[in-house]
Computed example of a mutant assay.
Amino acid sequence: MHLCLTDMEDPRKRAVIRLMLTATAAQHDTVLHDFQAFVRTVGPDTEERV
Rank of each mutant, 00 (worst) to 15 (best):
M1G: 12
M1I: 09
H2N: 10
H2L: 15
C4K: 15
C4W: 06
L5N: 06
T6F: 08
T6I: 15
D7S: 12
D7T: 09
D7I: 01
D7G: 01
D7K: 06
M8H: 11
E9R: 13
D10N: 15
D10Y: 06
D10W: 02
P11Y: 02
P11E: 03
P11S: 14
R12T: 15
R12V: 14
K13H: 12
K13S: 08
R14T: 15
R14N: 10
R14K: 14
A15C: 09
A15T: 06
V16G: 02
V16L: 14
I17D: 03
I17Y: 11
R18L: 09
R18Y: 01
M20D: 15
L21N: 07
T22D: 10
A23C: 15
A23T: 10
A23Q: 04
Q27P: 07
Q27A: 14
H28L: 14
H28D: 02
D29R: 08
D29S: 05
D29H: 07
T30Q: 08
T30W: 05
T30C: 00
V31S: 00
L32N: 06
L32C: 08
L32H: 05
H33T: 10
H33R: 09
D34Q: 12
D34T: 03
F35Q: 06
F35Y: 13
F35S: 00
Q36E: 15
Q36G: 01
F38A: 06
F38S: 03
V39K: 09
R40N: 13
R40K: 15
R40F: 02
T41E: 12
V42L: 06
V42S: 02
G43Q: 08
P44C: 01
P44L: 09
P44G: 10
P44E: 13
D45M: 04
D45L: 11
D45G: 02
D45P: 00
D45F: 09
D45C: 01
T46Y: 04
T46H: 05
T46W: 08
T46G: 10
T46F: 05
T46P: 00
E47Q: 13
E47I: 10
E47K: 06
E48T: 13
E48F: 08
E48S: 05
R49F: 06
V50R: 13
